[in-house]
Write a protein that binds this DNA or RNA. Structure first.
Length: 485
DNA sequence: TTTTGAGTTGTTCGA
DNA sequence: GTCGAACAACTCAAA
């Protein structure tokens, strides 16, 4: 009776280097391969719209790879405990396999699931499918979780070598049955937008799924990797890996990425320098660090790591928030970033810092509003990186940033998009301005504006706040916070 | 226990 | 145009 194994896919939508899957296959039982779309979501936060779009396509791709190995992916929606209970009752499931998650509410839910099924006599096995090291493995000398990136990363590398990825199973043995109880067609999850279909720009940009992830990795190793240490800050160049959504869904494992970068240099496939490698790998380290914080903090997503920030004098202004979110602030680099996000579901890392700093410091709007917006619009939005990065910019995060670090949007634009290539791409109404004034159109000569077809306040907004005044106001707000502490 | 050195990502001012 | 200093003070990690 108890001779089927249940494999739960979560944020690990791949067959290669998937330890839970490898173990399930090794158990030699017929497998039920399942994806449960949780309803209500554990932790209470529904997935964002862009992530839902990606998920649909990623599951489609996974289902195809599984089919090509002789089995089937079964989709479910609802409460995992109820769904699993039914699979046990109807199909004789005797063992369950999954890869771990690290949000405290996920940890709690999975721990409870494991305890309850073990109590019923089932075998339940969990694995590390998404991190180089488990968050509890990296500790300071006296055993505390690290709170600063550099020591964290140093300690992390002392834990062990990053293990080599495991190959995908060649064949998957399905449970012989006509119907799996409770399974539904993917389309019944209703993950795709209907009217309007806002996903066309996203679709043009991305290939969700394991094959697409590998393709992206190889493209990066060929094109962006060499010079990465410098050029990763340049949104006008194809120098970043753009692997974040693929990693978000686990279409590729962190170990695959880590080793591929290493090997590309060793085999001379890439002419990237050791500095490029070091910087790229430390970016992977930031992903680890965000998960480390997620695991050890009670509520990284909503609560300031530095509790002193609870008293921050945030302002709420829906008009300003809307201008920011739609890319209508009048600051070209900010607007380009927000429109890149809206159109493609993604934003260059450097530009993320600029737009986040603008919302938080120039507009004094709560970082959580920005985090929510990113959560809904980014295809790579995840529970660790998104809040950790917003808190980092706000200065409320783990390693506190100096309060006077306020990005100047003109300067950042000139520095990292010197010819305005990036701005021209996403803010086409400014495309004809000369590079000299593209990051500050209000400084252009009247004749330049006229030739470029720009009428400030009409074809493109005037700045919604004055940079100097906003900077002074932010400094005062941060100062007041410090004094009230 | 106390001390010490260090900390992703910046800007502005003045020489 | 370029460069170094000032912008403060605090927390963390390790010696």
């Amino acid at each position: 009776m108890s001779d089927a194994a249940l494999l739960l896919f979560r944020d690990d939508l791949r067959l290669t280097d998937n330890p839970a899957l490898t173990a399930a296959v090794a158990s030699k039982k017929p497998l039920i391969l399942a994806y449960i779309y949780e309803e209500p979501p554990t932790g209470g936060r529904p997935l964002g719209a862009a992530v839902n779009w990606w998920l649909h396509h990623s599951l489609t791709s996974l289902a195809q790879s599984i089919a090509s190995r002789g089995s089937m992916l079964h989709i479910f929606k609802g409460d995992p405990a109820k769904i699993i209970d039914r699979l046990i009752a109807d199909h004789g499931v005797g063992s369950i396999f999954w890869n771990r998650r690290y949000h405290p509410s996920h940890v709690a839910a999975d721990t409870a699931l494991k305890a309850s099924y073990e109590a019923k006599g089932l075998t339940v096995k969990s694995f590390n499918g998404s991190l180089m090291r488990e968050p509890w493995e990296v500790k300071s000398k006296i055993g505390n979780p690290m709170k600063v990136f550099t020591p964290f990363w140093r300690a992390s590398q002392l834990v062990n070598e990053v293990a080599s990825p495991e190959p995908a199973p060649k064949k998957l043995i399905p449970l012989q049955t006509t119907k799996i109880s409770g399974a539904i067609p993917l389309k019944n999850l209703h993950l795709l937008p209907t009217k309007p279909d806002w996903a066309t720009g996203i679709k043009a940009e991305w290939t969700p799924g394991e094959a697409g992830a590998l393709e992206r990795l190889n493209a990066f190793l060929e094109v962006g990797f060499k010079g990465y240490a410098e050029d990763r800050n340049r949104p006008d160049r194809p120098s970043t890996s753009r692997l974040s959504p693929h990693l978000r869904f686990g279409e590729i494992s962190i170990k695959q990425v880590w080793h591929a970068a290493d090997i590309a240099i060793k085999t001379r496939k890439s002419k990237a320098s050791s500095e490029d490698l070091r910087v790229f790998q430390s970016e992977l380290g930031w992903r680890e660090f965000a998960h480390h914080l997620l695991f050890h903090e009670k509520d990284l997503t909503r609560t300031n790591v530095q509790r002193g920030f609870d008293a921050f004098p945030w302002r709420s202004d829906e008009k300003l928030f809307k201008a920011w979110s739609r890319g209508m602030t009048g600051y070209p680099i900010v607007d380009a970033g927000m429109r890149e996000l809206w159109q493609t579901g993604f934003m260059h890392n450097r530009v993320r810092m600029i737009v986040a700093s603008f919302l938080i410091k120039h507009l004094l709007i709560d970082w959580r509003r920005g985090e929510d917006w990113f959560w809904d619009t980014l295809v790579d939005a995840d529970v660790a990186n998104n809040p950790a990065s917003w808190q980092w910019v706000a200065g409320s995060g783990a390693d506190a940033a100096p309060y006077y670090r306020i990005f100047n949007p003109m300067l950042q634009g000139e520095k990292f998009d010197p010819d305005g290539v990036y701005v021209r791409r996403y803010v086409p109404e400014l495309a004809k301005l000369p590079a000299r004034s593209i990051h500050a159109p209000w400084t252009a000569k009247p004749i330049e504006l006229e030739l470029a077809g720009v009428v400030l306040g009409k074809t493109y907004p005037k700045p919604i706040v004055d940079h100097e005044a906003a900077r002074a106001r932010a400094l005062a707000a941060y100062k007041s916070l410090k004094e009230s502490a």
